[in-house]
Design a protein around this nucleic acid. Structure first.
Lengths: 216, 216, 216, 216
DNA sequence: CATGAATGAGATTTCATTCAT
DNA sequence: GATGAATGAAATCTCATTCAT
């Protein structure tokens, strides 16, 4: 847990420098920060807590990040990168939007199990971005790339009209964000959520035409 | 903002205010708490900020709530009650699950406009409930009542099998929570979200059977 | 406990006015103050605690005493009066200094049992009189009258030389104050203390002439 | 006094002080704590006052002691150790109980002169140990060792019967505690106290057999 | 006479941050 | 690169006190 590893245990693909000791410490701090921020929120997390979880003292954190805010920003980018690389990986080679969505939902289950803190952090971050104390957060590029790629492919495949693309983007975000709120803590809830969303997307959850019966 | 002003404009005086004012003050504090907690999260919100927004001094808040934590709990119950009474109201008299869902989505738009802070607070609260700092939060009864009522009626109408009821509960939560994450700040996003979700529920967003066309 | 009664249940002798309701409340507050100050010290006792113990609210205390400090002063005079009236009573009619001392020690046992709080308060007060926060405390007249009376009678009887009178005053104070420190909480310690002091005064505790044996 | 100054005069600088200084700071805080607690009692002493007297800021005290209560406990152990080491030293080599008591009384005078604050602190502490605010205080081992040693030697020498040993312990405590209450502030009172107690112990203060004269 | 809402000052404690070692 | 003593600001909370009701 304190030596960062990619979501799936595979060696990190995009070239990170061959990790000297300093780099390892940096990653340990980032992991600790993600976990703490996810658990308690920005304001309630102290640098001392993060530092201790990473195995150093508060003062030492300043050798790696110039301020608590900067550490939050770095953790933010870090978490998005780790999680969405895994998502990108999960949809490779699927032939349809529905297949991609299903694969992604399955992967969500896995990520939530193995990287709970990162998902929780990301989920919380969207609410936390009050610029009053955090300053403007950078756009989470990996998430946008993943989302846009999926939409783009669906349009190319003809599963989505250009006009609907934007709508779908929103719905997609809604589902993912909702899922990380609802399915995060409880594995049962998580499984039911994923199953339910699959059925919803497949159109087999809600009866389209309710028995148009006699209703006073 | 920084000079405390009474809820109704005048500076507070010494001595006992006339009967009934105390309750008004309590509500003012609750409203301020909801707004501040929603904006900055529990840990980053100071009682001084809340008190000033409500027009009193920090110490006075302790006449109405015994601790910051207790204030959070009270605000939590308060927000759920206000929001879900509105939701209950929105689905009265609709004849089908889809109709109820559509009405509820429309009402969401309205609530998000007029009670942004309450929705934001509720949305955040689900992530915030780390018992380390907040203690165990009470069950949000109004939300559960609303959700269960909707499911119950759908089952009675035959739109949902008993077996699917649980799945639908989860999906329903996911959509609502996702919506409050994604559509909260930006009215355009909000509108697109609502529209997209309606289409998703109606089954007209994602093409069920992608043209199994010629794909190299 | 909250309706003040003289140490021995006898009706108070020196004329207090026939106690209207206000006077009763005043005494209840004084009793509560003595108990609280004795228990926690001046700085750690809050007016609210005292008021609650007396059955009213903090604000009401100000109808009877103009400030916390003034309440402390009043409690100080009150406790000394109650306790030393009882002491005066205990030595009436004894024929010798030793007899008076023995009677007084016995009475101490009784008072500590029935009026523990008052004794504790008096005992603590001698340390508490830092004028920084309490202002100058009035001389505790009842104590001085009791002490001086006892010495005066002893001198008249020829048990104490004029020259030793002052020394005896000091010793007397030392014994009484020591006793309230050591024997206050534990009844066994109290009994042993009283017994030991009697023996010390009688000259039968410490062997005067240690076996003048062969000591290199 | 209100501008923090280091123990040795200079204002404290940022950054880590050279080794060994930390221990000095700790002792400075303990000394300041003893002085302040003795002067004003636990509840009325603020950490800010203590810190300023020790030459640092209130927050810095928390590097050395985790809470005000813990600081009190540490000061308690510290004061007992300092004072009773001095007492132990004073009775070394005396040949009789009376000689030891006299030596101890003389030493009391000296200690009260040079370490007034410590004696006052110890004296107050016995009244202050209301566990409501201070938690359970540790046993003051140095005091018990001193007391028990003295009694033990007296019994061995045959000056005290086994049966009287317990009584003497109590009397001894009473005298010492009384002395620190009565003789603390005023040097004249102190001298008279010591002198009087010596006479009392020697049996030459109170006339044993009062002229059994004619008493109406 | 008593209440209780409110104030404003101050208490304890936490914490981001600095910097000599 | 890491430590840990120290700062100074701010946070939560308490409390003596006031005063309209």
């Amino acid at each position: 847990m304190s030596t960062p590893a990619a979501v799936h245990g595979e060696p990190r693909r995009r070239g990170r420098p061959p990790a000297g000791v300093a780099e390892q410490t940096r990653l340990a701090v980032l992991d600790a920060a993600v976990a703490c921020f996810a658990d308690q929120g920005y304001g309630s997390t102290s640098l001392r807590t993060i530092a201790e979880r990473a195995g150093l003292t508060a003062g030492s954190v300043y050798h790696h990040f110039p301020s608590k805010q900067a550490l939050y920003h770095a953790a933010y980018l870090y978490a998005f990168e780790v999680v969405y690389l895994s998502y990108e990986d999960s949809v490779v080679g699927r032939g349809s939007l529905l297949a991609e969505l299903n694969a992604m939902l399955d992967r969500t289950s896995v990520i939530m199990e193995t990287n709970q803190a990162m998902v929780a952090f990301i989920s919380k971050s969207s609410a936390e971005l009050s610029p009053r104390e955090l300053g403007p957060l950078p756009q989470p590029v990996p998430w946008e790339r993943f989302r846009d790629g999926m939409v783009h492919r669906a349009v190319e495949r003809g599963e989505l009209t250009e006009a609907d693309a934007r709508l779908f983007q929103r719905v997609f975000a809604t589902l993912l964000w909702g899922l990380s709120s609802v399915g995060l803590r409880d594995p049962v809830a998580r499984a039911e959520c994923v199953e339910g969303l699959k059925r919803l997307l497949a159109g087999t959850l809600v009866a389209k035409a309710p028995p148009p019966a006699l209703h006073p």
